[in-house]
Design a protein around this nucleic acid. Structure first.
Lengths: 334, 334
DNA sequence: TTGTAAGCGTTATCAC
DNA sequence: GTGATAACGCTTACAA
């Protein structure tokens, strides 16, 4: 079942069938409708491989993420796929894990599939310590658009859409301070583009309010509820005093709430807790956790819109920033 | 940059280059290594479209799910993608929502992309009330393998891997009863293949223990924490008495825990709560929610293994059942 | 062991 | 408005 069968049955040439297929106006209405009838009768579907071969595109973009089961990235993938499909593009998904070697390998693999663009979801794709490790992305961007969701890399052909994490954390810390908190513990998971921005917001807010930034109040912790709870318990046991906990991820905040329960601390009176991402987890606890909505849907919509503009030859800024929203729930009073 | 360039530089024919590319043994070592050198030097990558056109496959499978941001389905997609990639297959993802018309439309769309197989993740794809609405799947299965993850449809070319939801719920209810619970509330979200099996397990266990199945103890509820909490509050207010809550989804169980907190009920003493899927949510609450691990990873691994066997012409059972695990945490003592 | 040549099913460029 | 025909880049009989 191909274009020849259709052309034969309709008594026209394959060129005409192709014109009908592609909505070319240079076809008489009579011919057009006859060809369409034959197509329907035969249940003809154009072969995407042949089309891809001729046009060198299959209207497909590669989406890479470190872990599609992570709630934040799962949402990103959902929105990206939805927006791409609305624009007539398919998504090839690839979960890479966090090792650089795998990220590079899968990146090359997707490139070899001749995707029309690459979307890297999550800030884990930009190495912030060793800049040359990002060269594979920069080089690829010479050949096809590379979109970064919540990551930033300044090079031609790379377009970043980022959430203003630094400002979000600044605002949270600032409001906590202004409401009287003085010993704000900052717990974070990862050393990434986004992670560093968040931490900077915390530091800047303290500095702006004349509060010394204490290293012992800044702790790294695995992205894990139990680990966060244990960390806080051991910190408290070691005599560290804190009246608020800011976290770079809701899972850590859930751990903080469990810590507060274990110590019979009243939230927010004895301890304020702030999460990040405003995920389902922040709604599971009692009290519910105040958290930062990072506008992942807006981020993804913007990313796809920008991509479509790039495809259309439009001028797109290399970096688009979207503001986050603080969602006040029950673990803060700010 | 194509196979002709390589053949010219290497001084061989394109057929030989193709043989090297495909690991055909009928090439002398000398020729092979020379061709490979040239390929590397030129940075040659075969064109997947041309290959696809000739072979009528691009080693790609379509994955459909109703909502990739749902925690359960997000995990399914993660495992499916990982296993497929390990077997050299790409995944085209498509989130359909729950409307039949969209499911059909996207199904056709993926078929038109000439995927090598379709994987339908989640029990939402099998219509259980109107069998003829599944015909589009059954017809497609005549042309390519269709794999169902946690759904079942008995037709040639359709291979189902399901979790034994009925047995899981039976065991939970049976243990609750044997530990003394008599008024077990059952709250469920959806009327699906999997949903009906779960409910049947609950009913069967009650019947087997000589406890009458009461319709007022079986309630439907939106998949939503707040809705579940409100439902239980209004049921309790209306005088309904229950000493245990079984749910078809962890989100409902979280709502039940919040209800217990609101009423200052001790868990599990005053109220036992059981979730389903053993998702991250069930670890967020205090106390943590006992839940059923539906072995989503095993389900996905088995699905992909079966698919590879189908591709290889092997004989694969139309239905594979995997047992669930009850994970005892803090909201039960059974 | 290697080469030649015929497909695979489109799109696009010419003529007419 | 329509029809030949040449790409597109690969795989694979069939020949040598």
């Amino acid at each position: 079942m191909n274009i020849y069968d259709v052309s034969a049955k309709a008594g026209v040439s394959i060129a005409t069938v192709s014109r009908v297929l592609n909505g070319n106006p240079n076809v008489s209405d009579k011919t057009r409708s006859r060809v369409m009838e034959v197509m329907n009768a035969l249940g003809y579907t154009p072969n995407v491989f042949a089309r891809g071969l001729g046009l060198n595109t299959m209207k497909t973009v590669g989406i890479m993420c470190s872990d599609s089961s992570d709630p934040y990235l799962a949402h990103a993938i959902y929105y990206l796929e939805r927006e791409l499909r609305a624009n007539g593009y398919d998504s090839i998904l690839c979960c890479t894990g966090s090792k650089l070697i795998n990220k590079r390998q899968y990146f090359e693999l997707l490139l070899s599939k001749r995707v029309d663009a690459m979307i890297l979801a999550g800030s884990k794709f930009v190495e912030i310590d060793s800049a040359e490790d990002n060269n594979y992305i920069i080089e690829a961007a010479a050949d096809l658009p590379v979109m970064l969701v919540n990551g930033f890399l300044d090079a031609p052909g790379i377009y970043s859409t980022v959430c203003d994490d630094r400002d979000a954390m600044y605002q949270v810390a600032d409001r906590l301070i202004k409401s009287g908190r003085r010993r704000i513990l900052y717990v974070y998971t990862s050393h990434s583009y986004s992670g560093e921005n968040k931490k900077r917001g915390y530091r800047d807010a303290l500095a702006a309010n004349g509060i010394p930034v204490r290293d012992d109040l800044i702790c790294q912790c695995g992205k894990n509820i139990a680990a966060a709870k244990e960390l806080l318990i051991s910190l408290a046991d070691s005599g560290l005093d804190f009246d608020a906990v800011m976290t770079s991820d809701d899972s850590l905040a859930v751990g903080a709430v469990k810590f507060a329960h274990a110590r019979a601390l009243d939230m927010p009176k004895d301890l304020a807790v702030v999460g990040y991402n405003n995920s389902m987890m922040s709604y599971c606890t009692d009290p519910e956790i105040s958290s930062v909505d990072t506008k992942i849907e807006a981020l993804c919509i913007t990313t796809v819109q920008s991509l479509m503009q790039v495809f259309g030859g439009g001028d797109v800024p290399r970096k688009t920033t979207i503001a986050a929203d603080f969602v006040q729930k029950q673990t803060t009073d700010i």
